[in-house]
């Protein structure tokens, strides 16, 4: 395992921000930590990295119970981005490498290579303060991988990036995984998690609510059908499953256990016809909303607003 955490607890005042979180990240995987705002994702990651000490539980990073002792093998992109504005990009990347044990000369050489590969070759001599927010964020990410870490921890890496830079970042994460690194990242944007994660955990209210693969997560919800009748009239809902909800010209309902065929025959025989029909696999977003619950989402948003 690249990362294991058992029963992590962290209190701020009388609030348990992390409440018995378990995480197990196998080596070589992209592992997502999902959760609404204020769920305890960042605090959990900071505990794993040894930036803050837990009030309870234990953790191990790359087999070492003291994360700081293996910090040279770890890369980290924090939620709040931070770079020295007066530094040039190559120096900034080399500096982050030097903090993790990479010599400055190699750091500068790799920084240029990484920037060119990430499409930032034109900005190697620019100062950080001259970069756009997205570019600065990419530079910081490059700084977290310049020393070729075994474990890369990214806290909300996609926030604030435009779609082009989001795609660049996704490619970079995949390239790191292909290099052999383990990637642990937090997000509340499901699309990225769905595309990238080999495994994921969903945290809400400081507790783990789900752990498994994306497929496992989707399997927790049934398929949905979206049916649009050709000749609609008022008697239609009586033929549809009880959870059917009107959506525009059509109806959305859970796919019956015995399949859709029998229902379709009934609808055709009743004269409604079929103008459109789609069978939809549940998305990670659906799973997330069901697991976390709307209440928890709202509570998270309230907490964030208060903070």
């Amino acid at each position: 395992m690249a990362v294991t955490a058992k029963g992590l607890v962290k209190r701020f005042g009388d609030r348990r921000v992390v409440d018995g979180v378990d995480i197990a990240v196998p080596k070589g995987m992209i592992y997502g930590v999902l959760g609404p705002n204020g769920a305890g994702k960042t605090t959990s990651l900071r505990i794993v990295l040894g930036i803050i000490e837990p009030d309870g539980g234990e953790r191990s990073v790359l087999g070492n119970p003291r994360p700081r002792e293996v910090s040279d093998q770890v890369g980290y992109l924090p939620e709040e981005r931070g770079l020295y504005p007066g530094m040039k990009t190559v120096q900034a990347i080399a500096f982050m490498g030097a903090l993790r044990g990479l010599d400055w000369k190699t750091g500068r050489k790799r920084a240029v290579e990484l920037m060119e590969a990430a499409g930032l070759g034109h900005a190697t001599d620019q100062k950080i303060r001259k970069l756009s927010k997205g570019m600065a964020q990419l530079v910081q990410l490059l700084g977290s991988v310049v020393h070729q870490p075994d474990l890369l921890v990214l806290d909300e890496p996609f926030s604030g990036l435009d779609p082009v830079n989001q795609e660049r970042l996704e490619k970079l994460i995949l390239a790191e995984r292909d290099r052999g690194a383990t990637i642990l990242f937090s997000t509340h944007v499901m699309a990225h998690a769905e595309r990238l994660c080999d495994r994921l955990t969903i945290i809400a209210g400081g507790k783990v609510r789900f752990e498994g693969t994306v497929a496992d997560a989707r399997a927790t919800l049934p398929f949905k059908a979206h049916y649009v009748p050709h000749f609609p009239n008022d008697g239609l809902p009586a033929l549809l499953p009880a959870d059917a909800l009107r959506e525009g010209d059509g109806w959305r309902f859970t796919l019956p256990d015995e399949g859709i065929e029998a229902l379709l025959i009934k609808l055709i025989e009743a004269g409604y016809g079929i103008s459109g029909l789609s069978i939809e696999r549940p998305s990670l977003h659906d799973v997330f909303v069901r697991i976390v619950g709307r209440d928890a989402l709202e509570q998270g948003e309230r907490t964030e607003t208060a903070a």
Binding site: E80, G82, Y84, L99, Q140
Partner: peptide, 17 residues
């Protein structure tokens, strides 16, 4: 104050004691 205002402190704190 420079590290705090630039948020670099998180990077430093994660990498070095």
């Amino acid at each position: 104050a420079e590290e705090r205002s630039n948020k670099v402190i998180e990077i430093l704190a994660a990498a070095v004691p």
